[in-house]
């Protein structure tokens, strides 16, 4: 009997306790899926693509420069006397599907790509540890044929790059991306060299402030695929975001502003001081 009494009083008082701590919005939070955004400031880490895509109906206009070697010294104004450049842009067909076009001075190359973000990092109802994006590039070099007298095929001008970009925003400041990549060249200088070149890219970005980040990018080309004088591309850059623009200032040992060039054609070595200053300017327009 006493137990019942105690129980009743307990119920009564417990209700009182709730009442005293009056919170009108005391319902449990409705569980939703919280998608991670802004893993990178823009859709390039340094040279290579990041998992980011531009939003639907947005056009991201990009101008990229890579100057000459810092080791050129004051005579070459530390490389500023020479430059390679790419002008191009990324367009959002949907928030996840992008297409892009560009023209580079390197080998007078036109490039185009299709990029699709098929996984989004999220927490909540749907837990997804990473964001993943697929990108397929095609490049057309339009240099005059080095041997115009022989039979030349248009297909020899083509090269392709396919990449699986997998990134995780580990903390608010730190994001890491892995980029398994295959570059296919329709023509190579000798049968000793491979047409398909496999590599693995690593991208790291660390926020310094809300609007600036430090980026590191390295592509490791698996051994015995390229000419002996080729080397891996390493780049260190800063992103500065100012609202509509993202400025990416960086140092790299590649002059190539597209994948086939910087992954498979890089010869300059950091240890020789053959480092280039470069920048990408991205400006987003809305339609």
């Amino acid at each position: 009997m006493n137990k019942i009494l105690i129980l009743l009083f307990l119920i009564a008082t417990s209700r009182l306790c709730v009442a005293q701590d009056l919170d009108l919005l005391d319902e449990p939070e409705v569980k939703t899926t919280d998608y991670t955004t802004a893993t990178f400031k823009t859709n390039r880490v340094v040279n290579g693509h990041s998992i980011e895509t531009v939003a639907k109906n947005e056009f991201d206009f990009k101008i990229s420069h890579r100057f000459g070697f810092l080791s050129g010294g004051p005579y070459d104004m530390f490389g500023l006397d020479q430059a390679t450049m790419r002008i191009g842009g990324d367009y959002g067909i949907t928030d996840n599907l992008n297409v892009g076009l560009g023209r580079s001075t390197v080998d007078k190359t036109y490039d185009g790509f299709v990029k699709y973000k098929f996984l989004k990092q999220s927490t909540g109802v749907t837990n997804m540890p990473v964001t993943a994006t697929w990108i397929s590039h095609m490049g057309i070099t339009t240099l005059k044929w080095p041997q115009p007298d022989r039979k030349n095929y248009f297909s020899s001008r083509l090269h392709y790059t396919h990449q699986l970009l997998i990134a995780r925003k580990i903390t608010e400041g730190l994001s890491i991306q892995l980029s398994p990549t295959v570059v296919h060249k329709n023509i190579v200088d000798s049968t000793k060299f491979k047409n398909d070149i496999f590599s693995l890219g690593l991208g790291v970005r660390q926020k310094l402030t809300t609007r600036t980040t430090l980026n590191l990018e390295y592509y490791y080309v698996l051994p015995n695929q390229l000419e002996a004088d080729k080397t891996n591309v390493l780049s260190v850059g800063f992103d500065i975001e100012t609202g509509g623009h993202v400025f990416q200032l960086f140092f790299t040992n590649s002059s190539g502003p597209f994948e086939k060039a910087f992954i498979t054609d890089t010869k300059a070595k950091w240890l020789d001081g053959n480092i280039r200053f470069g920048f990408n300017i991205a400006r987003v327009f809305n339609f």
Binding site: L8, F9, I11, A12, T13, R15, L16, V18, A19, L22, L24
Partner: peptide, 11 residues
Amino acid sequence: VTLGFMAFTNH
């Protein structure tokens, strides 16, 4: 008493 409290505290 219990019911009273419950009614009173039921917002």
